[in-house]
């Protein structure tokens, strides 16, 4: 496990930002999300962990409707998730998303990647967008790579650019779908450090990850999923030292002791 030491300031969560109510989803015969109830407060950092196939990525992707749900309700900042169309696009702009495979626009430079959404969605003028983009790239530590293409960057750098691209939209909440799973071990920390900093700055974050170190140090709450259900929710110290469910005990014993 990668340990990133950090002193977590106590962020006081206020107000419900993301609310999921009895959400269900099937992939064919597989009931991948089963009656999911989850509420994330403003400023809260929630880490979702669990074994492969437990539905954690699907849950993350359902929040900005990259996956549709069969029934139940998802609302963000008090507004229910809209159907396809303009409303949905507007909502997605408010929800930043970071993917496992970075998904930087391959035909655009790093700078253009971070500027695009600001110009086309937020209608910010080009000069201001470039200023913002350069500041964000500086913040995630890749300012010197601005004019390169994504394929010329290392995985860790690409993922930090992807975080900057999401931040450029000034989102209310950030979703991280296994952001470090495709990275070489030595690059994981540089991405986690950026995420730690974001958490300290009070960003609301939902992070699907296998990085227990990050969960311990940055999360306000750990959500443990297995077989499409939320099995356990607890503060990280309590979850890691004293898990209540057998499923969680089993999972932790497999990943922590080797």
């Amino acid at each position: 496990m990668t340990e990133v030491s950090v002193t977590k300031e106590d962020v006081v969560p206020t107000g419900e930002l993301v609310v999921l109510k009895s959400v269900n989803k099937h992939f064919g015969a597989l009931h991948v999300l089963q009656d999911i109830d989850l509420t994330i407060a403003r400023g809260e950092v929630v880490v979702v962990i669990g074994p492969s196939g437990s539905g954690k990525s699907t849950l993350c992707r359902a929040i900005n409707r990259l996956e549709t749900i069969d029934d139940g309700a998802i609302s963000i900042d008090g507004k229910p998730l809209p159907q396809e169309g303009k409303e949905l696009a507007r909502l997605r702009a408010d929800v930043g998303m970071v993917f496992q495979s970075f998904n930087l626009f391959a035909h655009k430079t790093v700078l253009e990647n971070v500027m695009l959404g600001q110009i086309k969605v937020r209608k910010i003028d080009k000069k201001k967008a470039e200023e913002n983009a350069r500041a964000l790239l500086d913040r995630v530590g890749v300012a010197t790579q601005a004019d390169k293409y994504p394929a010329q960057l290392s995985g860790g750098q690409q993922q930090r650019v992807a975080i900057a691209r999401a931040l450029a939209m000034d989102p209310k909440v950030m979703l991280f779908d296994e952001p470090t799973s495709a990275l070489d071990p030595e690059m994981i920390n540089e991405v986690l450090e950026v995420m730690q900093q974001l958490a300290r700055d009070g960003m609301t974050m939902i992070v699907v990850t296998h990085e227990m170190g990050f969960a311990r140090s940055a999360a306000n709450r750990v959500v443990f999923m297995a077989d499409g259900r939320i099995v356990e929710e607890a503060a990280p110290e309590q979850f890691f030292s004293n898990p209540r469910s057998d499923r969680a005990k089993d999972f932790l014993s497999k990943i922590l002791h080797h």
């Binding site: 990259l66 997605r92 702009a93 695009l116 086309k120």
Partner: peptide
């Protein structure tokens, strides 16, 4: 790759922008 269109939609581009700015080029 599908991820390109997903990333485009995730920053709030609509279908036609995703196609014109990201996928078709």
């Amino acid at each position: 790759p599908l991820g390109q269109a997903e990333a485009a939609r995730a920053i709030g581009l609509n279908f036609s922008q995703t196609l014109r700015l990201i996928v078709l080029p």
